[in-house]
Nucleic acid binder design. Structure first.
Length: 330
DNA sequence: GATGTAAGGGCACACGGTTC
DNA sequence: GAACCGTGTGCCCTTACATC
């Protein structure tokens, strides 16, 4: 095997040494593999299929041979192709590399999307992890580009897909919040609304639902910032998280809503107001609150007999849920 | 998917305060 | 004092949810 042409791996190493940037190396390798295709006038789909099949077998010697042959095809050899330009110039600037790649794409009648697709497909098959990494790098790089970012605003087809993604992430966060915090879980009759620590609850939302937190903070940011905002409405995120949670799981994520409802009724808020707030999804229904209060009246006597247990207002991690109520948490 | 439970909705009735 | 209005409560049925 020593007389065989340079193996693909050696060839890749050599190309890499010629072109310093890894991404450009990939382009050159891809470009080399596709040079032969452009000479055979296949359809675009066929081209990509063949490119993919070539790229998926980087270790086969045939690939190396055909690649080398491709560079010697009449079409490629007739004029100096952009491929040759890249591989023969040892020290090219970034701009020159981009121009050479641009020439290549025009030469093959490829779009930038075709190039990206071929680049991503190099990681398919046995190398899904690589493909994921490439996809992530590509998306992150594109999102940093202002023009591309603006495209997200303009292309309506993208909005629904992005919203679906955000909803999935937010629902997962709400699920996390429900499982790992007391305040956003099922109602705990040992808790009292007046003992809630708003700041601590807010931190808890930030910890377990960072995307929701970021979303609410971003959307509710003052339209005209003048120095430090005077009123930060720290409880806003708690109420919004509670509304979402109650909508998701009214039986098992109703703690805050019910505490608030009971508290408002204790303050003398009338049925019509409670019903109105219930209509907005802020608190439980009037009847539910009444039932709960009736239920609370009986056990509260038992509690007083057993020694008063202070209300739990900690909304910390789920690990705290098993511990005995601690007054320090209030 | 079946099942038990809790919550919600609709309705009716009683009670108290206000208005005419 | 009658009529009206708002509130509180109870009953029954349906629906939604959690659990197995």
């Amino acid at each position: 095997m020593s007389s065989a042409p340079a193996s693909p791996s050696k060839k890749r190493r050599r190309v890499k040494s010629d072109v310093e940037e890894p991404s450009t190396t990939t382009v050159v390798t891809t470009a080399t593999a596709t040079a032969q295709i452009s000479t055979h006038h296949h359809s675009s789909r066929e081209k990509r299929r063949r490119v993919k099949s070539n790229l998926e077998e980087p270790s086969s010697t045939t690939t190396a041979v055909t690649t080398a042959t491709a560079l010697e095809t009449p079409a490629a050899a007739s004029t100096e192709t952009p491929t040759a330009q890249i591989s023969t110039h040892h020290h090219t600037s970034r701009e020159e590399k981009l121009q050479a790649i641009s020439k290549l794409l025009r030469h093959w009648r490829w779009t930038f999307g075709d190039l990206c697709l071929a680049w991503l497909q190099r990681g398919s098959g046995k190398r899904q992890a690589l493909k994921k990494k490439k996809s992530r790098d590509l998306i992150l790089a594109l999102l940093k580009d202002e023009v591309f970012f603006k495209m997200f605003e303009e292309v309506e087809e993208l909005h629904g897909t992005l919203i679906d993604l955000v909803i999935r992430l937010l629902r997962a966060e709400l699920d996390d919040l429900q499982r790992k915090t007391v305040l956003f879980g099922s109602f705990n009759k040992e808790m009292n609304f007046t003992d809630l620590d708003i700041e601590k609850s807010r931190d808890s939302v930030q910890q377990h639902a960072p995307l929701l937190f970021q979303l609410v903070e971003g959307l509710s940011q003052q339209s005209r910032l003048r120095g430090n905002p005077r009123n930060r409405h720290t409880g806003r995120i708690i109420l919004i998280a509670s509304i979402f949670s109650l909508g998701r799981a009214r039986n098992t994520a109703n703690c805050f809503a019910r505490l608030l409802g009971i508290h408002l009724q204790d303050l003398g808020v009338k049925r019509s107001v409670l019903s109105l707030l219930h209509g907005f999804g802020i608190i439980d229904g009037y009847k539910t609150i009444n039932r709960q209060r009736a239920g609370l009246a009986e056990p509260s006597n038992e509690d007083s007999d057993n020694g008063s247990i202070s209300a739990r207002a900690d909304v910390g991690d789920g690990g705290d849920e098993d511990k005995e109520p601690d007054q320090d948490d209030v």
